[in-house]
């Protein structure tokens, strides 16, 4: 029997980074934020409120392990012992299962704070499209939440939905955005973004004679509409920042921004680390206030 070979098209690359300009030995306060999400986990280490190192990995079946792996990966090659971290905060779905965390804070607060940091103080609306949920947050000039909404009941319009779709169509997840624009004419959005019915939807269209890129375009635009309907509820203000993995998919984001009729803010940071950055910043603020709990 021929050996079955299956490529995993949804697989995105894990990464870590450290700031070569910072010497952690000189830092007064070192804090860490660990965001254990449903699909990906991030750890960010901050020295005196500046990002020193971070990592971005897939979440395993075990939250404590995922948290530890993420932190170890972030600290890789830095020579910093874990004991140097003054305060560590856990966030995300697995936040109560982060063994080294001094306390946990919800991802809503952390994402607003993190987006405010990586995108700058002009941020007023934060959209986080994560692995299995979608959060829309409005914040003030200090990064404090003023209005939020989270949808985590339905996976339609989330990162995981896109992963499933890229696998079904055998298109690497990083190419989805680009390829969804390689079409002659913008197709009608698919009728349902439901992840369970994704296969029916995709094969149906392919059988009708659609090209793969057209199917991608139809799915991306359905997702854009779906996400837009959520943020509409909290109101959209200028200073629109997108965090989470979906921010890297321009097929969805460009179509959504067209509906919103705004320009999305830009950042050089990895958009997936926003939650962990926010957590580390809260840690920094709490240490400064001397309010260790």
């Amino acid at each position: 029997m021929a050996e079955e070979k299956k490529q995993e098209f949804w697989r995105w690359t894990e990464s870590n980074w450290k700031n070569p300009d910072i010497k952690w030995e000189d830092a007064k306060i070192v804090t860490a934020g660990i965001d254990v999400g449903s699909v990906s986990s991030q750890a960010t280490v901050m020295t005196d409120g500046k990002i020193y190192a971070y990592s971005n990995m897939r979440t395993g079946s075990d939250s404590p392990d995922s948290a530890r792996n993420a932190l170890n990966y972030a600290l890789e090659g830095t020579n910093m012992p874990e004991s140097r971290i003054d305060y560590c905060i856990g966030t995300g779905y697995g936040r109560v299962n982060v063994p080294m965390a001094d306390r946990s804070i919800t991802e809503i607060a952390c994402h607003a704070r993190g987006a405010h940091f990586i995108y700058g103080p002009d941020v007023r609306t934060v959209l986080d499209v994560g692995g299995q949920d979608c959060k829309a947050i409005r914040c003030d000039e200090k990064g404090k939440v003023v209005n939020f909404l989270m949808n985590d009941k339905c996976a339609a319009g989330t990162g995981r939905g896109m992963e499933v779709f890229s696998d079904l169509l055998s298109v690497p997840i990083v190419d989805v955005g680009e390829r969804s624009f390689q079409i002659k004419e913008e197709p009608e959005p698919v009728s349902s973004t439901c992840v369970v019915y994704a296969k029916t939807e995709a094969t149906g269209l392919l059988r009708k004679g659609w090209e793969v890129n057209e199917v991608l375009a139809a799915y991306c635009s359905a997702m854009a509409e779906r996400i837009f309907s959520l943020i509409e509820r909290i109101g959209i203000e200028k200073g629109f920042a997108i965090t989470g993995g979906m921010a890297k998919n321009k097929g969805v984001i460009d179509r959504m921004m067209k509906i919103i009729d705004l320009e999305a803010m830009k950042t050089d940071w990895d958009t997936q680390i926003a939650g962990a950055v926010g957590a580390a910043l809260f840690g920094y603020a709490l240490v400064q206030k001397g309010r260790k709990k």
């Binding site: 003023v146 939020f148 009941k153 339905c154």
Partner: peptide, 11 residues
């Protein structure tokens, strides 16, 4: 802060 708890689904 306005905290919206709940969800949106097909219905």
């Amino acid at each position: 802060m306005i905290a919206n708890y709940g969800y949106k689904d097909g219905s």
